[in-house]
Nucleic acid binder design. Structure first.
Lengths: 266, 266
DNA sequence: CGTTGCGTTGAATAAGGTCAAATAGAGTGG
DNA sequence: CCACTCTATTTGACCTTATTCAACGCAACG
């Protein structure tokens, strides 16, 4: 979570933006993706990435398709909507925001991917990414060129299936969001959001009761279909009721069961 | 749209439900899926299904993976959430509703698939379908066993890519719904829903200004995150403003541009 | 011809959004 | 390290919107 702080800054400004990019990105743009001694066998995201179904002969295995990694600093975009689709990305660390720009110039958050999550699947449909992905916290992603995946998937049924599973899972999980947006009131939504984060942190070996929110209230609100004030009020209420202890971005869930109860209340 | 009315009724009640199935299904349950003289070259879903990338030698082509079809009558389920995942389905005709049951016993509509749409992708992730799919109108689906797809996709890069595209498209389209649910007011939502239907009918060669709603106001509401009364009020308002002409389920869009304007209003 | 399900409409209510002001933090530059 | 600035957050008061509750109309069906 707090690795990758030892980077050199300032070098290699890439200028190929399809849209205006925030000024702060210029301060420390990422190095270009570099081939490294990447071993998927050591990757914390490995299990999630390919579910241990990789072929046994290592020349043909995952290591052959993931040949670069890319660091992404806070505020920097991994890709923009409209960029040509070339690769999927599997995060090794960091915390990110996936969003789309709506016709009316607003932005709609569609997810908060983190270590172990795969992004880029939105690009396959039209050969261009449909979403934007930006780092809310410094991190690193494995670059998985789609061309390589295609070849490997053709040779390895296990990997083919795992790729399908990842896509299917994304479809199913989006439907969970839809169900939430469609049916739940404000407070249950916020509660479910916190519990969702909690579970995801837990699955990655972090504390599931004490963590830092990497996103603003407004970003939470966008994701949940609420205004930032409503999010803030809900959080304050949870605190007043002893369900959480919060200090701006730092949160501790003190009554997991109670919070889960809020979820049920419509 | 109105074919398949000539079926024999009453035979072959299948009893293998994982959940209670509505009584009306017993009146005319579907025949079991049968191998038929199926030619994908005649299938209306063909282009959407595999985008014309099928291999030229017909033995190895699409025809080899779609070997059965299945009729589904109004009120009958194509599959239930929890059923073992075996196949994808590509609709040749009919109109359907895809929904999930929420923990609190409600049901949340997640889509209205129709001819040319593919369903079942939700089942790959966990080997069980996550959604329910029920016919709102008699129809027929091509049964595409997943095992067959895997084999063919491994042999044909074009088909592999087309499958990925279908999945990616579903991911992207769900995100459109999320954006709608998260940002729009009631009337714009309903307007966008109508325009969406209009486009889909147009893409299939039907009138895009005059069609029949196959679903109830409540189902529309569930899909849009609104109550049925709100949907009804929105429709009535559109009619009052001369944007549509509606008579219960029959609708005619009389001012396409005007309706599109409603969409923009937040 | 009553029953049932679907749809419309109205009035009251509650939920969330909007507007506004105060305050805390984080980042920046001296 | 400190002051300054900008952004994020909280909270209150008020307002708009959609939901809730309820009554009624219509059509299909036994």
């Amino acid at each position: 979570m707090d690795e990758d702080k030892d980077m050199l800054n300032g070098a290699n400004l890439e200028v190929k933006a399809p849209a205006l990019r925030p000024v702060y990105e210029l301060h420390r743009a990422s190095e270009p993706a570099v081939r490294r001694a990447t071993s998927c066998s050591l990757c914390p995201a490995r299990a999630i990435c390919f579910g241990g179904n990789e072929p046994q002969n290592s020349d043909e295995g995952i290591d052959s398709i993931v040949h670069t990694r890319r660091r992404v600093f806070r505020g920097e975009h991994l890709y923009y909507a409209g960029d040509a689709f070339k690769s999927l990305y599997s995060f090794r660390s960091g915390f990110f925001k996936s969003y789309v720009d709506t016709p009316d110039g607003q932005s709609q958050v569609v997810g908060f991917p983190m270590a172990g999550d795969v992004v880029g699947l939105d690009g396959i449909a039209s050969d261009r990414y449909e979403r934007n992905v930006v780092a809310l916290d410094d991190g690193e992603a494995c670059v998985i060129p789609y061309a390589n995946i295609q070849g490997l998937a053709a040779r390895s049924p296990g990997i083919q299936h795992q790729l399908h599973k990842i896509m299917s899972l994304e479809i199913v999980q989006e439907q969970v969001i839809v169900a939430m947006l469609g049916r739940m009131r404000a407070e249950p939504r916020v509660a479910k959001f916190l519990l969702g984060l909690s579970q995801r942190f837990a699955a990655r070996g972090y504390s599931h009761t004490k963590f830092r929110l990497r996103m603003t209230r407004e970003e939470i609100g966008s994701y949940l279909g609420l205004k930032l004030e409503t999010v803030s009020r809900a959080l304050s209420l949870f605190q007043k009721n002893g369900l959480i202890q919060l200090n701006f971005r730092s949160i501790e869930i003190t009554d997991l069961r109670g919070l889960d109860g809020v979820t049920k209340g419509i």
